[in-house]
């Protein structure tokens, strides 16, 4: 069974210009114990997606339709109290900016004890548990460092602390929103390695968002490519990266100089801009920038199956089959 199963999710923001349709009919799954990556350029709705999973959305966001099934039950139908009970226990988050992630005026130890507030254990035991977790993510001398404040740690250390905090409760699902974007390349490799080891040990499912195709290739089992609020391609890393079925994915990989090996802070640029999400085009969402655009593209393509477990929203697939 999938830990996370998102079905047909649509989310929009109300803006002065009208309704901005940030996610449209997004479906994807995170199988138990697997790491699923999400790629897509800035503004394609990655953060919107994860904030609707954990239901910490901007006040102007509305869920139009769909289900977010976690271990089989729909999170969108839960009460706020039931949701809060899941956060930090069954579902944990690591955010993008490690410098902003922790409260600046409380010690790391205090914050790590606070998030164990549900356990009826003495504080000393909670501190011990926190120190163990810090040791696991590779922070030397953890007992002493628990008494320090976030500003006394480097960015890489803080991101490790964030990972330690997220995994402390041994969640069933870890969501990481560009957890390594703010770090330099060597640190990124270290943290990714440690994350993978811990994930292996805990056996949790991971939803991993990154701009870095190389990291996704290294870390993930499956990948979901998003474009302008839609899933345009999904499948195993091997299928999607070596045999892209969607022209957008192909373009992403083409612009990446070292072909998914070189670190990029932003996704490689493809000529043109993402469409306006308030006034959406009629046909294929990628048509404006697609070099394979043809007549059929004036209608919206469905998600076609290219091969087992590999799907893409492009007319070319259906045409190849019928041809």
């Amino acid at each position: 069974m999938a830990v996370l199963d998102i079905r047909d999710l649509s989310v929009s923001y109300s803006t002065p210009r009208g309704s901005l349709r940030a996610l449209r009919n997004v479906s994807m799954t995170v199988p138990e114990g697997k790491i699923v990556g999400i790629v897509g350029e800035s503004g394609c709705g990655k953060s919107t997606l994860i904030s609707s999973i954990i239901r910490l959305m901007a006040p102007n966001a509305q869920v139009g339709s769909g289900e977010v099934r976690f271990k089989g039950t729909d999170l969108l139908a839960r009460s706020e109290a039931e949701m809060r009970a899941l956060r930090g226990t069954e579902i944990s988050m690591v955010f993008q900016d490690p410098m902003q992630t922790h409260n600046p005026v409380l010690t790391v130890g205090q914050q790590m004890v606070d998030i164990q507030y549900r356990d009826k254990k003495p504080k000393a035991e909670k501190l011990k548990r926190a120190a163990e977790m810090l040791a696991l993510v590779g922070i030397p001398d953890p007992e002493a460092r628990l008494n320090q404040y976030p500003f006394e740690f480097s960015g890489g250390m803080r991101q490790r602390i964030a990972i330690a905090m997220a995994l402390m409760a041994r969640p069933a699902l870890l969501i990481a929103d560009e957890p390594t974007t703010a770090l330099d390349a060597t640190l990124e490799v270290q943290i990714i390695k440690r994350l993978k080891e811990l994930q292996d040990e805990i056996g949790c499912g991971v939803l991993f968002i990154s701009h870095h195709l190389g990291v996704i290739a290294e870390l993930c089992d499956e990948v979901v490519v998003m474009y302008a609020g839609e899933v345009v391609e999904s499948g195993t890393v091997r299928d999607v990266f070596h045999n892209p079925a969607h022209p957008y994915t192909a373009a992403l990989l083409d612009c990446d100089p070292g072909h998914i090996k070189v670190k990029t802070r932003v996704l490689p640029t493809i000529p043109g801009n993402i469409p306006d999400l308030v006034n959406l085009p009629k046909g294929c969402i990628f048509a404006d920038r697609c070099d394979k655009r043809h007549k059929a593209c004036d209608t919206r393509p469905a998600l076609w199956t290219a091969r087992a477990g590999h799907r893409a929203a492009c007319h070319l697939i259906a045409e190849k089959e019928t041809a």
Partner: peptide, 23 residues
């Protein structure tokens, strides 16, 4: 960001307001 983190860990809202933010 740290308030978002506190929420993502399910800390009680009152706790977040008075212990994490007001300080």
């Amino acid at each position: 960001g740290h308030v978002r983190t506190a929420r993502a860990f399910g800390l009680p809202e009152r706790w977040i307001t008075y212990r994490y933010a007001l300080r």
